[in-house]
Simulated assay, not measured.
Amino acid sequence: MIRLTAELTPAGTSYLATGQGQPVVLIHGVGLNKEMWGGQIVGLSSDYQVIAYDMLGHGASPRPASGTDLLGYADQLLELLDHLNLPQAAVIGFSMGGLVARAFALHYPERLQSLVVLNSVFNRSEEQRAGVIARTAQAAEHGPDANAEAALSRWFSREYQAANPAQIAALRQTLANNDPQGYLTTYELFATQDMYRAEDLGTISAPTLIATGELDPGSTPQMAEQLARRIPGAKVAVLPEQRHMMPVESPRLVNQTLLQFLQFAHSRQNHIKGIVA
């Protein structure tokens, strides 16, 4: 079992790092923290340097300043890479982390080796948008765990919830323990920024994978396909019978998808370097 001690950047970002090789950075979803990536840390660290960190307002990282936008969250990742002296990294973002990864790709393309967006949102329908705005209002009034039960039902299959009650209870506690203002600032961005600089997505040139679960009700296969169409050469993977929290519920399946893509991205970059040389 890999047991890691969290470290801090000068700006206070809490992160875990293990393994050697090309760096792969993992960005969690809203209300969660770096601990959600346990299955990926174990599954990827034999081939890569794996780095997981707490987003602003989450875990042991500092609260975002009032009015922080997605660029502020991308800047947090930039400071982490600078602290680790990493000129480039593969960036994997889950849900809200996918929005941060997209913003990072747009603002700092020279620092991006490859991009993976997992179970994330794009071009919500009016009905979907109204639902997430309503959940934002509930969180503002009642706190981070206002929607916990409904969220867990969207995130996991009923079988997984029944088989893993301790883990589900721990996740429920993680949601409740979030800093209310940090959570709300982040959730408001999650609720409103699915089309963040959508007109510029065609400028992303790094190898890109957009993946989600077949049964993910909030980050649908249709969203994944629409987003991938905006990014030149992007690949799409829809994992059968998977819901939103597929990195946690089915880590081996997700890791297989990630490893295949990362190997493809690495070979493509080596091919391009050979042509340039």
Rank of each mutant, 00 (worst) to 15 (best):
L175G: 10
N147H: 02
F190M: 11
S157H: 09
N178A: 14
S157N: 12
G182H: 14
I168P: 05
R158L: 08
P180H: 14
D200M: 04
N177G: 13
T186K: 05
A150I: 06
A150Y: 06
P165I: 09
Y196C: 00
I168E: 05
A166H: 09
Y183H: 15
T203E: 01
G182D: 07
A191K: 01
A148P: 03
A169R: 11
R197L: 00
F190N: 09
P165W: 14
T174L: 13
Q193W: 02
R197G: 00
Y160Q: 07
A151P: 05
Q173A: 14
H142W: 02
A198R: 03
A162D: 14
L184A: 14
L201W: 00
D145K: 07
S157W: 03
T203Y: 01
L201F: 01
E149W: 03
S153W: 04
E159Q: 11
A169G: 10
A191R: 01
T186S: 15
Y187E: 09
A191S: 13
Q193L: 04
T174P: 02
H142D: 11
Y196A: 00
L201D: 00
D145S: 11
T192P: 05
T185V: 06
R158E: 15
D179I: 02
Y183V: 15
A150H: 12
A150M: 09
E199F: 00
N178D: 04
I204P: 02
G182E: 14
D145I: 02
A166V: 14
Y187H: 06
T203A: 02
H142M: 15
L184H: 15
L171I: 08
G182Y: 05
A150N: 04
Q181D: 15
A176M: 05
Y183L: 08
A176I: 12
A148G: 08
H142L: 15
L171S: 08
L184Y: 07
G143A: 03
A151T: 09
I168K: 14
A162G: 14
R197T: 00
G202N: 02
L171A: 06
E199K: 00
R158Q: 13
A191Y: 05
Q181T: 15
T186R: 04
A146W: 07
A198H: 04
M195Y: 01
A169K: 12
Y160W: 15
F156H: 06
A163G: 07
Q161A: 14
A191E: 06
R197K: 02
A169Q: 12
S157C: 05
A198N: 01
L189W: 04
F156W: 08
E141M: 07
Q193I: 01
L152I: 10
E141T: 04
P165A: 14
T203P: 00
L152D: 08
T192R: 10
A198V: 02
E141D: 11
N178M: 09
A162Y: 11
I204S: 03
R197Q: 01
E141S: 13
N178S: 08
T186A: 15
R154K: 07
Y196L: 00
A150S: 12
F190V: 02
P165Q: 14
E141I: 04
H142Q: 11
G143S: 10
Q167K: 07
D179R: 03
F156D: 07
A162P: 09
E159N: 09
G182S: 11
F156A: 05
Y183N: 10
N147I: 09
E159V: 14
L152Y: 03
A146F: 07
L184P: 10
E159H: 13
L175Q: 05
S157Y: 04
I168Y: 07
E199W: 00
T186V: 11
D194H: 06
L175T: 05
I168F: 15
Y187T: 04
